[in-house]
Amino acid sequence: MKVGVVTFPGSLDDVDAQRAVRLGGNEAVALWHGDADLKGVDAVVLPGGFSYGDYLRCGAISRFAPVMDKVVEAAKGGMPVLGICNGFQILCESHLLPGALIRNDHRKFVCRDQLLRVENNRTPWTSAYAEGQEIRIVLKNGEGGFVADAETLARIEGEGQVVARYLEVNPNGSLNDIAGVTNERGNVVGLMPHPEHAVEELTGCGLDGLGFFSSLVERTFA
């Protein structure tokens, strides 16, 4: 598949995401925040970083980047979209995902190898994993606390929209230990930890993140 990776001013994990896309067996296509089209890609990754300097709120300005008009349109049409860390924040600001990401409850930036449990393997990004599989990937954020009102939280829990959950320790105060969620259709996924930093033995904490990118090859989604 052709997977577009968007670079915003302040993105810092875009090149890593492109490499992970290729290692997962896909073709990586560089997209710029000012692009007026998606260059014929089959899926999109919004990478981590500090887009537009995280001014106003994380992802609040990026949501209005020209390329995001096309991403929102494509996502609503069923295109697989993955937002990692800052990309997750952008997806929430774009109302493609429920909830919001706020400052960590301990008010400090956290960087650690984080154990997760895959709760939903029925998305284009998680089908390479078994439901309930425990994986360890890199986490690095200062505003990664997932929050939602009680009604929204009950809905995403009840409808299986939690994609991954923190184990061992909750690193940022996310409600219900939520590390990632999907939309109702299941094609849009937001994940606070960084799977693109766990795709090679030489760097990162192993290969547990590779499944987020190889999943696109293994299954076809309408």
Rank of each mutant, 00 (worst) to 15 (best):
N141C: 06
D13I: 07
P47Y: 03
A222W: 01
G59T: 15
D69S: 12
Q89Y: 09
F64I: 10
P193K: 04
T182A: 10
L191D: 07
G186S: 07
G173K: 03
E157W: 10
G59I: 14
R22F: 03
R219Y: 05
L116N: 04
D35E: 10
V67A: 04
P47Q: 07
Y55V: 14
T123P: 02
P9N: 08
C205W: 01
V189I: 03
I61V: 15
Y52S: 08
M1C: 02
G206I: 01
D113K: 13
I137D: 00
G48A: 11
G180K: 04
T182I: 01
N172Y: 06
G53Y: 11
I90Y: 04
E131R: 12
F8W: 03
E93I: 05
T7G: 09
F221V: 15
V29G: 00
A65V: 04
R63W: 02
D35I: 11
G78H: 03
V189P: 06
F64R: 06
N141K: 08
L97G: 03
C85L: 09
N104F: 05
P9H: 01
F8E: 10
L153G: 04
L31E: 00
G77T: 08
G59Y: 11
F109M: 11
A150P: 04
L31F: 08
R185G: 07
T7C: 12
K70C: 05
D14A: 09
T203K: 12
L116W: 06
C85E: 04
A100H: 10
A154R: 15
R63F: 05
G40D: 02
W32Q: 11
S215M: 09
V147A: 06
P66W: 03
G48E: 07
S11H: 02
E119K: 12
V188N: 03
R122E: 15
G87T: 03
G77S: 11
G209I: 12
S174I: 09
V163T: 08
A17E: 02
I135W: 00
A20F: 14
W32A: 11
V5E: 05
V72F: 09
D37H: 04
L115Q: 10
G180S: 09
A75C: 09
D14Y: 02
G190Y: 01
L56A: 09
P98Y: 13
R117E: 14
R122W: 04
E168K: 15
G40R: 00
E151I: 10
